[in-house]
């Protein structure tokens, strides 16, 4: 974006949801210290997600070419149900725990505005296609980790993390399918409307 001064079909809605995901998940940087790595990575996640949102909102060139009439997914349709579910389905009814659970549920669906935008914009830019592919792959690798830990560690069970991570990965499934086919047939990636 910085280099070409254009948003490449990246959905601002999704970027804002990700910023909210990390803001609600990493509240513990104020309460307890786990390790230097832990706090540094959290600050990187927060810094990068908020700077993308800031850049897309503030930078005059990016903002002008960002197609806001296409990226119209209403956040609240995702935020409200996730908040409600986090209030009902959590492991401990404390503020931190509910916020953390909310961030997991929200992360599972945060990609939806981006996928909708990709369906609407006919020609998907390579950069954006790769970006979404890697976001999905990151999640898929977590599932491999969970399987390994379930098999090797006694009582390693995290239903909330597993279910939201699984749903998140499933949302990418059709994108992976079309991405693979466009790569195999060496065609431009297009998602059916």
């Amino acid at each position: 974006m910085r280099h070409q001064n254009q948003p490449y079909g990246v959905s601002l809605k999704t970027q804002e949801l990700y910023a909210l995901v990390f803001a609600t998940r990493y509240l513990d940087i104020f309460t307890d210290y786990i390790s230097l790595y832990n706090i540094v990575m959290k600050l990187i996640y927060l810094g990068s997600s908020f700077s993308i949102v800031w850049y897309m909102r503030r930078h005059k060139l990016v903002r002008r070419s960002y197609d806001k009439e296409q990226d119209t997914f209403r956040h609240l349709f995702l935020i409200v149900p996730c908040l409600f579910l986090a209030l009902v389905l959590n492991e401990r009814f404390t503020f931190m725990e509910v916020m953390w659970t909310f961030s997991l549920y929200l992360e599972a669906v945060a990609i939806l505005p981006q996928l909708v935008l990709l369906q609407r914009t006919r020609n998907i830019d390579n950069l954006t296609g790769q970006y979404v592919l890697l976001l999905g792959a990151y999640r898929a690798f977590y599932i491999l980790n969970w399987i390994y830990r379930y098999l090797t560690e006694v009582h390693y069970v995290h239903w909330i993390t597993w279910m939201s991570g699984l749903i998140q990965t499933l949302l990418y499934a059709d994108f992976f399918y079309y991405y693979f086919h466009s790569w195999k047939n060496n065609e431009k990636l297009q998602l059916p409307a």
Partner: peptide
């Protein structure tokens, strides 16, 4: 819960 999970999963 977030306590035991946050240690190994960002």
């Amino acid at each position: 819960s977030s306590a035991d999970n946050i240690k190994d999963e960002l």
